[in-house]
Amino acid sequence: MARFFIRRLVLLVAVLFAVTFLGFSAMNFLGDPLFNVVGLMAELDCEAIEAGSAEDPSLDRARSDCETVAEARATYHLDRPVPVRYLLWVGDMFTGDFGTSFQNDQPVAEIIREKLPETLILLIMAQIVSLGVAIPWGVVAAYRANRAFDRGSTVASFGLLSIPNFALGVVLLYLLSLRWQIFPSAYESDSVVGLVFSMVLPAATLGLPLAASYQRLLRTDLITTLQEDFVHMARAKGLPPMRIMFRHALRPSLFSVVTVFGVSTGAMIGGSLVVEQIFGIPGIGREIVTAVVRDDFPVVLAIVMLVACTFVIINFVVDLFYSWLDPRVRAR
């Protein structure tokens, strides 16, 4: 167990390093790093401006811009050699300093702190929806494999997997909130109940396609598990079918779902960008899209790093979760 854990930990650190380095490269090598943090001000010829007449009032604005640029150079360590810059940048991030949005001068960390809860609520609710739908669905489909329900559910899941997130969101929004007016069409944060209620549709948009893929995996694995000797043994012990299903067959059948859980969290984070857009949820997904459109690079990079690192860590935790699911993994 200890060796397994350490090996995983080393991989985790290496991947985190690579991921941050990729982000850093995007900022520093794709395009001018200075432009990426201060925008058009990077074009200013500050030396000429400094050299210009101190009295010339038309240069006042430019002079203050040049101060901003010099500040940015210092903040983002742009005068240091690349490896040092990288280390300093990573160090800054670890201490919660993600730089400053150059659109509204707000520290990026503050923006994230403000927007993250909404996105987290959305993602958690979406996972609840997906697992809450997929487990009963998969169990029933496997128990009645190749019967009418199972065949129907295969068709349904195929359809759900083929509809893009944004299209599903628009359709759900139209049907359930505009046409039948069951759910609110816009984000509400007045009360907890209102918040959760307004998140149902977005969570369903993210969760239902995922439920379909979980269901298919769970169904396949369950059908295999149900043919195992130990399930026969449980039947020979005289246990009732549903008890066998949940106490014996379900846990060993969750491997694929758990594997995909990590990967699907990534898809879900991607999907949340779109869904927050459709339902007007002020989360980090909406923030990053706005930032991209405005070329607000510090915000984009910070959010990308945050999301990627979270994703890596989630997959790490999922890996560890295996050893709970199957004690045999620990022995390896």
């Binding site: 991921v19 995007a26 960008l273």
Partner: peptide
């Protein structure tokens, strides 16, 4: 293998945004 692993460590849409944001 490591490169693939790193590429898969980004949520797909997020990696796409990182690239399209800079170019």
């Amino acid at each position: 293998g490591f490169t693939f692993f790193v590429l898969l460590s980004f949520p797909a849409l997020v990696l796409a945004i990182l690239i399209t944001a800079t170019l």
